[in-house]
Design a protein around this nucleic acid. Structure first.
Ligand SMILES: NC(=O)c1ccc[n+]([C@@H]2O[C@H](COP(=O)([O-])OP(=O)(O)OC[C@H]3O[C@@H](n4cnc5c(N)ncnc54)[C@H](O)[C@@H]3O)[C@@H](O)[C@H]2O)c1
Ligand SMILES: NC(=O)c1ccc[n+]([C@@H]2O[C@H](COP(=O)([O-])OP(=O)(O)OC[C@H]3O[C@@H](n4cnc5c(N)ncnc54)[C@H](O)[C@@H]3O)[C@@H](O)[C@H]2O)c1
Lengths: 212, 212
DNA sequence: TATTATACGTGAAAAAATTCACAAAAAAAG
DNA sequence: CTTTTTTTGTGAATTTTTTCACGTATAATA
């Protein structure tokens, strides 16, 4: 492996990268050109060595005694995450969670643009929400291939999650961000990320208990 | 350490426990009295050994050659997570994400009952949403001590998150479930769990890339 | 009853992630 | 110019998490 190549793996590190991006963008906006791992660690409440090791996986190197170039580091992290070229995404299930996500503009900064929502409720279909059209499920397949969309956000009830996930896989979607509390089965070529809120609640519950 | 005592630590295991709970409750509803680790692993797409090791931390033991008693395992997991006695929680920030969480009845099954929402927008204060009253921030402290609430869900914009978190800490809240993309500083006695959606998006992005 | 299949429990090995320790470079201070 | 402080980069140690391997118990089957 070449010495300067970005390493793969390291899921916990990958999951922390967006935090650095957030702070770095703030610094860039404030005209700050360099950032040290100690400064980043302080603003994020992490250990300094964690910051250094996390940055290491992106392949970006800093200057000893100085720090990292803010602009270069932002680029490096975005590059690593593939967030520099915005990708289009679909959202299926325009319910309350779906609408919250549709209205959230933070995703744009993460290279994600929700271009259409889908729902099987006739009352919701036809309208639009925050400028995003809500379309019937029948349009899913043709639109996916026409727009080359390969990320889908799944916010349908648990009972429908598997059925919709299968449809999505069938449309050539390669990544599903699943908010339903359901284990979905898809072909290996499709990556599923379960956003399991109950997992977080479990962790918080145990942490509160042991803090007392 | 006594042999049968539930172990501490093991964050990944703790975060998986709610999944078992979900499946087990389904089985219980269907009249199934025993469940094996292989059956659980199949329904959740996990390895069998993961299931066994996860259950181990709760201190519940099964019967060799048979499996675990469904009812006993449910109780054991709920016990371990402290989900058997419902705790009351506050939600601060009745915006779109806050409302989605308010309307979600899944939390009740996780021992969490949102009893009041708070907001600083006069247009929202005074009303109620899904039976939960939306109150002004000025009522926060008195109500927290009167109702002995010690969990808060934080869904205010990032700029206000620190300010509100400090208020919450000041009210004697011991756990904050933070949905804002902001690192908040609170006294050590307060546990913070950051629900960082961008972390998940980062993980999904990298997984999609490496699947191609 | 003997055999076979299933399945728990657990110590140990392996892998992943975190943390330590220190050399080397750069800047700041004296 | 020398010393001190800051900071990166990285191999190694440590800790955490996952995975393996196998003894033992139970049920079903022949
Ligand atoms: N609301 C929350 O706070 C929250 C929290 C955690 C998890 N979740 C999960 O997120 C998902 C959505 O939750 P919600 O509160 O937005 O529910 P919701 O009922 O408000 O919305 C679900 C939407 O999906 C649509 N839908 C149902 N079946 C469909 C199908 N087969 N094809 C297309 N669309 C379909 C419905 O018409 C509705 O608009 C659920 O799985 C829920 O468990 C929600
Ligand atoms: N909506 C999403 O899908 C989404 C996704 C990821 C993260 N988030 C985060 O969740 C948080 C809430 O997002 P949202 O989309 O619901 O925003 P929102 O603007 O719809 O809601 C924020 C609410 O907080 C209230 N508020 C603002 N300042 C307050 C204060 N000082 N005290 C009390 N209440 C205050 C506002 O009146 C508003 O009702 C934000 O931090 C956002 O970044 C949201």
């Amino acid at each position: 492996m070449p010495k300067n190549a970005a390493k793969v793996g390291k899921i916990p590190s990958i999951r922390r990268l967006p935090q650095y991006l957030r702070v770095l963008r703030g610094l860039e906006g404030a005209g700050q050109e360099v950032a040290s791992s100690s400064m980043l660690s302080t603003s994020l409440g992490l250990e300094q060595i964690v910051v250094k090791k996390d940055i290491e996986i992106t392949g970006i190197t800093g200057k000893t005694g100085v720090g990292y170039m803010v602009a270069e580091l932002i680029d490096g992290i975005e590059d690593y995450l593939g967030w520099n070229n915005s990708s289009d995404a679909f959202l299926v299930g325009a319910g309350s969670m779906g609408k919250a996500l549709l209205g959230y503009d933070g995703f744009r900064r993460h290279g994600l643009q929700i271009v259409a929502a889908f729902d099987n409720d006739e009352g919701k279909v036809g309208g639009e929400y925050k400028g995003v059209p809500v379309l019937p499920m029948s349009k899913l397949k043709s639109l996916a291939s026409r727009l080359h969309v390969h990320i889908a956000i799944l916010t349908v009830p648990g009972d429908s999650a598997q059925e919709v996930a299968s449809q999505l896989a069938d449309c050539g979607i390669s990544g599903i961000w699943n908010f339903a509390p359901t284990t979905i089965q898809v072909p290996e070529s499709v990556s599923v990320l379960n956003e399991d809120l109950s997992a977080s609640l479990a962790e918080l519950s145990v942490r509160i208990q042991s803090n007392m």
